[in-house]
Design a protein around this nucleic acid. Structure first.
Length: 752
DNA sequence: GGAAAGACATTTTTT
DNA sequence: ATGTCTTTCC
């Protein structure tokens, strides 16, 4: 069996329809003839290939491509699917996209039947928050009681049926009343301004299909087969939507892996996949267990981690590849060391012939990217951060889009609030307050009320500013709705938004200008690709793109990303950082058994992204915003049999002399200071010697005392045996259970 | 009304 | 350490 992952056959449909490149299970899934099929596809078992080929097979069986609905988790996955299907006659007519996009598609067409203006605007989280904050002001609610973000999560929670743990404790005194008021106002506000949030996109579609049987019927007729990818991450509303769009004669195929369900916190219901046969009693199930991605040690290590979860769908992955390299586990003293190790690991892989774009570094929280970035910068290792502040999330891009949204939907309150005073037009908080009062009194949307600024009692200056603002929007509304780029340009020029950035003394604003220009360029590209594409389509595109959609392969750089962002990707070399309690599992999920199981799955997902090399680091101490903290290695590491591990200590990586001449950074090129341990080996040694001295003097331990071990964390001293050099201690560690250690090596500290 | 300075909390993951 | 929200002063 080849160990080269690139040797695997391309998953594109074979033009001749042959299935010879599939294994038995895959072939069974592709050619399943019944109405309902569940494909439980373990990590790296060829899930995407099966999905694509099944669509191809359905078409070959005579199902018209436009009668196929394929729902994916990201737009990128949908585009990828479409690209592969293009080789097939009619393949481009398959409807492929995310649940949200499908909802949006139906609501634009039929929303009017349930009182939704087809010109609705889609709100993202920022927009939702700005509306909610405005409501806080109107209702004079103390932003400390439920904080706006919490209230927002709670609103979403309630909208989605309220299963699981509520993000907000409504039993706290005084909260419930203000929350209900908030929620009601929020919903009314969105209604009034033709705004839909992400939840509404799904919920309103369900309502449409429920309240309008004739429309539902139309789609029952149309879709002969529905396929859903990543089914383990669908929520109850998505399942509901699926059941309603599916006609009595339609077939359904869902693909997923319960072990990779990592979006429970967002409302994903693993139940959907685990109890698929309850929704579809005659469903058949195909299990894909042969992994083509990873070498033996990597897969084995990952399996031994996931095995510990309770209530799993029975499944055991295997590979026919060689064992390959051991999983390397490196203990670092602190976060800086970890950065050094990351850089060095990357360099080592590079020396072994890897390209940088075959390497990925994962972390649990996005904020951890900073330390890694710093270390890679110092060594001039090119990298790309996937996600982070993504393009469409940038303030200036959102500002520009807000202008455009107001052109498309004059009632868009979130957009109005965002840019009515950007750049400054003399419309401050006091004026807005007057405007809101006036709007509320006459039951108008904010944008509508604005045209009567004087009546609202605004100052002359403010009223003037608002007038200029509205005049610009009117002017642009008179322009044709396509192409989009000129619309954006007219707005940016007419509002002087562009000019303000250009003239700003702040360099940050200058770089913002570039982003604004990039947005215009993006719009121009959009116009080229879709000559018919109007403003509305463009805005929808912008609202529904995700961070993951931005990821591109073959950049010649190392990829840095959160584990969540890594889902669905694979890399020859993977480095998982921060494998510690608090990250894996995350501190927030401690004490919640279901949450902890999800954390384990998350670590499993991280491990199974690796094809040939998997390296894991953890730090004994880490600097947080509250100061330096002790860190305990992730308990998941303990589940990996030591026969699959290559244990390393930061010290074992050797002094910075190990850096090859060629990679030695140019000292003049950096304004950063290298970490002491890297730039001055002697200092590092001094530190180690100091530690040793502390150790020898010893903390005079007694049985029953709490102690701290730099590796295993806190524990209780159970017993002492032997004496002098051979003294051994037995310690019951909180996170690792009982261990016997040589006292002289244990580096114990006494805990109060 | 706006700018600047200061207080303050913030860190999970995101369609 | 950073960014956001609030306060203060012009």
């Amino acid at each position: 069996m080849s160990t080269n992952p690139y040797a695997h056959p391309n998953p594109s449909p074979q033009p001749d329809g042959s299935l010879g490149d599939l294994n038995d299970a895959q072939r069974g899934a592709v050619t399943h003839a019944g109405d309902a099929l569940l494909v439980v596809a373990g990590a790296g078992t060829g899930k995407t290939r099966v999905l694509t080929r099944r669509v191809a097979w359905l078409i070959q069986q005579g199902l018209a491509p436009y009668r196929i609905l394929a729902i994916t988790f990201t737009n990128k996955a949908a585009d990828e699917l479409k690209r592969r299907l293009e080789e097939l006659p009619g393949g481009a007519q398959v409807w492929a996209g995310t649940f949200h996009r499908f909802g949006s598609f139906l609501l634009r067409r039929h929303g009017a039947d349930i009182g939704i203006d087809p010109g609705f605007t889609i709100l993202d989280r920022d927009d939702q928050l700005s509306i909610l904050k405005a409501i806080y002001k109107d209702l004079d609610i103390d932003p400390a009681t439920p904080r706006p973000v919490e209230a927002l999560s709670m609103i979403s929670h309630v909208k989605n049926g309220g299963g699981g743990r509520p993000p907000l404790d409504l039993t706290a005194p005084g909260i419930a009343a203000s929350f209900d008021a908030l929620r009601e106002h929020y919903i009314a506000r969105l209604r009034q301004a033709d705004l839909l949030d992400f939840d509404d996109l799904l919920l309103e579609t369900v309502r449409l299909l429920t309240e309008c049987p004739h429309i539902a019927e139309q789609y029952h007729q149309r879709f002969g087969h529905v396929l859903v990818d990543e089914y383990q991450d669908t929520n109850v509303v998505q399942r509901d939507l699926l059941l309603r769009v599916l006609g009595p004669d339609a077939g359904i195929t869902v693909v997923g892996d319960p072990d990779q369900s990592i979006y429970r916190w967002r409302g994903a219901a693993v139940r959907n996949i685990l109890e698929f046969d309850q929704d579809f009693p005659d469903a058949e199930q195909v299990l894909l267990e042969r992994n083509y991605r990873s070498t033996g040690h990597i897969l084995g290590a990952a399996e031994s981690v996931i095995e510990r979860n309770k209530g799993r769908h029975a499944k055991r992955l295997f590979t026919e590849q060689d064992d390959g390299a051991l999983v390397k586990l490196t203990r670092c003293r602190n976060g800086e060391d970890e950065g050094t190790v990351a850089a060095q690991q990357i360099a080592n892989w590079q020396d072994a012939g890897r390209r940088l774009d075959q390497i990925a570094v994962f972390y649990r929280v996005n904020s951890m990217s900073r330390g890694i970035e710093l270390a890679l910068n110092q060594r001039r290792i090119p990298y790309v951060v996937v996600a982070g502040t993504e393009f469409f999330q940038r303030r200036e891009v959102k500002d520009a889009l807000a202008y455009a949204r107001l052109v498309a939907n004059p009632k868009d309150e979130a957009a109005f609030l965002r840019v009515v005073n950007k750049p400054r037009r003399g419309v401050g908080a006091a004026s807005l307050r007057k405007l809101r009062d006036f709007a509320a009194m006459h039951d108008l949307a904010l944008g509508t009320a604005a045209s009567r600024a004087e009546e609202a009692g605004m100052s002359k200056r403010a009223a003037n500013g608002v007038k200029r603002f509205l005049a610009l929007l009117e002017r642009v509304r008179a322009m044709p709705v396509a192409p989009v780029a000129p619309i954006l340009e007219a707005l940016l020029e007419g509002s002087e938004y562009r000019a303000t950035l250009q003239d700003s003394p702040d360099d940050l604003d200058r770089s913002r200008l570039e982003n604004v220009d990039e947005l215009v360029a993006y719009a121009r590209e959009f116009g080229k690709q879709e000559p018919e594409g109007d403003l509305r389509t463009f805005l929808e595109r912008a609202a529904l793109v995700s961070d993951q959609d931005g990821y591109e392969r073959g950049t010649g750089r190392v990829s840095l990303m959160s584990v969540h962002a890594a889902k669905g990707l694979e890399f020859p070399c993977v480095l998982i950082t921060g494998a510690e309690m608090g990250y894996f599992p995350h501190a927030r999920s401690l004490g919640d058994p279901a949450g902890e199981e999800e954390e384990r799955r998350l670590f499993y997902v991280a491990m199974t992204r690796a094809q040939e090399e998997l390296s894991v680091t953890h730090a004994a101490r880490r600097q947080t915003y509250m100061g330096e903290e002790h860190r305990v290695p992730s308990p998941y590491l303990n589940d990996v049999p030591s026969s699959r591990l290559d244990n390393q200590d930061f010290a074992a990586w050797g002094a910075p002399a190990a850096w090859s001449e060629a990679r030695q950074p140019d000292p003049d090129a950096f304004d950063f200071e290298l970490p002491a341990s890297a730039s001055h080996p002697s200092e590092a040694m001094a530190a180690l010697q100091h530690e040793a001295a502390v150790r020898e003097s010893g903390p005079g331990l007694e049985v029953g005392e709490r102690v701290l071990h730099p590796y295993f964390g806190a524990g209780r001293l159970e017993a002492v045996s032997g004496a002098g050099e051979d003294a051994r201690v037995t310690i019951d560690f909180d996170a690792f259970g009982q261990k016997q250690l040589l006292l002289r090596h244990a580096r114990l500290e006494k805990l109060p």
